[in-house]
Design a protein around this nucleic acid. Structure first.
Lengths: 237, 237
DNA sequence: GCAAAAGTGTTGAAGGTACACCCATGT
DNA sequence: ACATGGGTGTACCTTCAACACTTTTGC
């Protein structure tokens, strides 16, 4: 019998960070714009520049957990919906050395939180995605990946329920979707698609908002959404 | 003016690995099976168990470069087509400590290489995806992600040209696709779709293989494929 | 009665699926 | 002549895009 031996192996240790592109939508219903949350760095390198919130993954910390923690620490935001986008580790992307980042993308209602920059962040602000400042590191590239990912997901299904109150109108849902995709959608086609997906159900009551017909309210049905996600998966061998 | 100061910052250093699920297809044309390349570990932990090839990312090494290097070192295979699948960093997934892995997926023609296990690998072998041994670490989960990714991509377009000789018949391309997707496809529909995508063009000559009509040969047109990939991307703001 | 947003159906195009027969060859 | 895989067309259905008028309300 071979005796179980203790082994010692030292491996290279690049840094690992998470960066979060957290999106929201702001403006009036007829003129919503997609915005992304940026922080002004209070640390070198790139001190004073705008960047995606993010930071180093701690020992024994889950990747998504790290993303949530950094978001909370640097901006005060909790409870957003997050999805992993990709990992990027091109040498030279960070002047501090070899640092690999895992990019997360998320959505939240901007006005539900008030921004509380702390830690590495001197300031935190929402920026229109169409009017960004120059970004630190390769964050312009990471953001580009995140926007592409978000749009691809949203093309499949309107997953922007995070941005809405519990009960919402179909016009609101459509305006949001349009703002994120950056193009107008046909109202009738949109309603048919959403109804067919079955993620929403009629809620009690209507909303009167101006001198016009009140709108039916709807509610997101998380369970139907989950079932839809399950159905997307491939069959195992 | 604030004088530019030198800063010192030490960050936590989880390990970063890449793991590669490299697929091929083997068997006769009428009975192809999807296979994945595994190595038998020659190092603790999990010594003697089968695992995905992979290993630590070196200082200042690109992620995909690391995947290619590990694949070459552990199995002798070079020049496969690779795509990133996801990053996984669940605490406890590796007994050596906090180790984050970036999973790559790839395709190559198994019989174009002969396997030359070295380094951490005591052996390297192709296994049927439908008859896998128990895998080290959480590699069963990683492999599952990779298969799902592969099938989703292949559903969109037959990207398995890596598995074919320079000139191939449509029946070969179809048999491959069927083996990977794990379900049969209608011949006429398949041909129409492939022709419509425009990735292939007729090549000179035919192939006579048995006592039946010879098949037209085709050739992959990388440029048409690239243009298709470009078209998939979303519009910038 | 008019302004303003809510709500609703139909048609045509494109893409996907299902299905059956003839063709070229070797034996 | 027959066995074997190569090669082709058509009908149906589903999905998506385009398009305009009526309804309900506040003023």
């Amino acid at each position: 019998m071979v005796k179980k031996q203790k082994y010692v192996y030292e491996w290279p240790r690049p840094g690992v960070t998470v960066d979060i592109a957290l999106f929201t939508v702001a403006g009036t219903l007829q003129h919503l714009r997609l915005q992304v949350l940026l922080i002004e760095r209070d640390e070198e390198p790139w001190r004073g520049m705008w960047a995606l919130p993010g930071g180093f993954v701690r020992e024994n910390e889950d990747l998504e957990g790290a993303a949530r923690r950094e978001l909370q620490e640097e901006t005060g935001i909790q409870g957003a919906w997050l999805e992993q986008v990709t990992a990027v580790g091109t040498p030279g992307r960070d002047t501090r050395g070899h640092i690999i980042t895992v990019v997360y993308m998320g959505l939240t209602a901007g006005d539900r939180h008030h921004l509380a920059p702390r830690g590495d962040a001197r300031a935190a602000r929402w920026f229109e995605v169409s009017a960004l400042p120059k970004l630190a590191f390769d964050h312009a590239l990471l953001l580009d990946h995140a926007v592409t990912h978000l749009r691809r997901r949203l093309d499949e299904a309107p997953i922007c329920f995070e941005l809405l109150p519990e009960r919402f109108t179909l016009s609101e849902l459509q305006a949001l979707t349009e703002a994120i995709l950056g193009r107008p959608l046909d109202r009738r086609n949109f309603r048919r698609k959403v109804a067919h997906l079955g993620f929403i159900s009629e809620a009690e009551g209507t909303r009167r908002e101006g001198r016009h017909r009140p709108a039916q309210l709807y509610r997101f049905v998380p369970q139907a959404f989950m079932e839809h996600a399950e159905r997307q998966k491939a069959v195992p061998f």
